[in-house]
Each structure stands twice: as C-alpha cells, then as structure tokens.
Design a protein around this nucleic acid. Structure first.
Lengths: 159, 159
DNA sequence: GATGAAACGCAACCGAC
DNA sequence: GTCGGTTGCGTTTCATC
C-alpha cells in the first residue's frame, strides 16, 4: 500500500486544513456540501478525509453529549500531589486515572503533579472516587478539589 | 405529533443509554451494526438517535483531531484571578475566553476564578494570548500558568 | 500522481402495514 | 417493530491533465 498523499505533518495544504476545521464542527457534513464549500469534487474530498483518518490527523469521530441532561451535573477539578514521581509509580497513577468519570487527566509541572477534570452526578459519587483513587493510594500525598461553577467552554478543538 | 419515545431527562431507557455510549465512541457506526448490538431494528435505532439529537442529548458530532500532528504541541493550564466578580465583568471575561486557542474554560470556586486549558504551537503564541487576554485586561488581577507535560487523557465523555 | 464526472451499490430514511 | 420503496450517500472506476 502506497501513501499517495502527503504523510508528513506539515504538508497539509489549505484544502486539508479547511476540511479538518469543518469536520471538527460537524463530522456528519455530507461530502457534497464539503465539496462545494472547499471547491473540490466529492471524490477528492472523500479521499482526503479517508487519508486524514489513516494518517491519524483525525483520531475519532464522536458524539458530544450534554452532561447536564445525563445527570452528570457536577464538574470538579482535582489537583493531585504525589509522593514518588518515579516512572513506575507515575505510570501506575496514570493508568488509575482512566475511569469513565475522569474526563481529562494532565500530568503537569508546578507544585501539583496531576490535574484532573471529573464529572459526577452527585457528591457521593465523588467521595467514592476520592476513596478509591486518592485515599487508598499511598502514592497520593494530598489533593485539592476545585468546584466548577460554570462550564463556560469545553471542547477538544485544535484549530 | 406524538412523543412516542421518552422526552424527559430521566426517562432514557437502557437502549438509549447503550446507543449514546456507542455513539460517543464512534458516531459513524452504521445503523445496522448498532441495531444488532442493542437488539433493536435499524428503524428504531434511527428514530431514537434522531430524537436524542432533537432533544439535545447529543449536542454535536465532531471529529477529534490530533493536536500534536497539527502543531499544537503545547498544552497549558492557566489559573486566572480576577479583580471584580460582578456579573457584568464576569460575562465580559467569559466571552473573552472563547478564542480557538482556548479549548476549555471553567469558572470555579476557590482562590482562583477561572481555569483555562490552552493549546498553542509555541510559547510566542502563548505570550501573545497572555498579552491580549490578561495583561491588557484590568479586571485580571493575576494569573498562574501550569505547563502540561503529558496529556494523559482528554475526552468529553460523559458516561 | 492527483483530479473530477459519472456509474455503482449500499445505507438511511419514510411511509404503510 | 417489520417490510419495501425511494432517496441520497459514500465509494469505485476511469479518463484527463
């Protein structure tokens, strides 16, 4: 199998970037509509998108759900401070921070070591998570919880 | 027009939840595949999904792009402390935190007022953002930047 | 090697039952 | 919820540049 179109990171032309931007807003836009927007044929658009998938520029196509409607009404940010930052311990922690309630997990510099974004239906659920992930983990020195009052913006947009 | 299917927030049955979970992973799954997975007919699955869109459970269908491949290699968390927290000033700030580089913006309790997740290609770009959003804004008392070393997990998953 | 026009086959969609 | 018909879509082919 031959890579016919640009594989490299920096060889995306304006058409590709235009398409990515549009798909990022709505990945169900019909090819026909995309085609006339970027002034290419549907066939070309289809091939470019396929290539963008194959080469990993497009990682996934997902439905964005409304957390409020699904009862996940509380968003919390948790700053985690760890005891040992050796590779093995870190990897262990990272993999423990992969549950469905944990929307995001960042390993960071500064006085904190991890920053988590957590979504829960109520505080009982959060307490359960704390027990499981923090209190019962000897490598977690301490953690600080920040309550989100307003989810002003929450996307994964890149451009 | 009859609401044949549940409209209320809490009346999603297991089929709806199952569908949402699957669409959240891949919103391009063929109806046929979804149908046999949840043991319903394709027609029903299609109607349910349409309803979930109309009622706002599904907010959007988006392509998830790889930030690294697109040159947005630096992720930063910014803790913003404001001067005045009156409604008008807050709304002004919130709307200023809506640029494309700002992936997420949370209005929070605690000693900070806002927490931002920012994606940039380099530090010059970040500096430009700081100037524009923070230094030139009299209502921003001070801000603290946290550098993300590893984007361990970054989704918008709800369940 | 990438492109666009047109043909193909399949899936989504909409009604009737 | 099932069944068919219709439409519209993504996909492939092929000739062109």
């Amino acid at each position: 199998m031959k890579p016919a179109l640009p594989l490299d990171k920096l060889t995306l032309d304006k058409f590709d970037l235009d398409l990515l931007e549009r798909l990022q807003k709505n990945c169900q836009t019909p090819l026909r509509e995309l085609a006339e927007a970027v002034h290419l044929s549907t066939a070309t658009v289809q091939r470019r998108i396929q290539r963008l998938k194959e080469t990993g520029y497009i990682q996934a196509n997902v439905a964005v759900l409304d957390p409020d409607r699904l009862g996940q009404v509380i968003t919390l940010l948790v700053e985690v401070h760890v005891e040992k930052t050796h590779t093995t311990e870190l990897e262990q922690l990272k993999s423990s921070f992969s549950g469905p309630e944990i929307q995001q997990c960042y390993y960071v510099t500064g006085d904190a070591d991890f920053m988590l974004v957590i979504l829960v239906p109520n505080m009982t659920a959060f307490q359960e998570i704390c027990d499981r992930l923090f209190h019962n983990n000897p490598n977690v020195k301490w953690f600080r919880t920040i309550v989100v009052l307003d989810r002003v913006k929450a996307t994964l947009d890149v451009v």
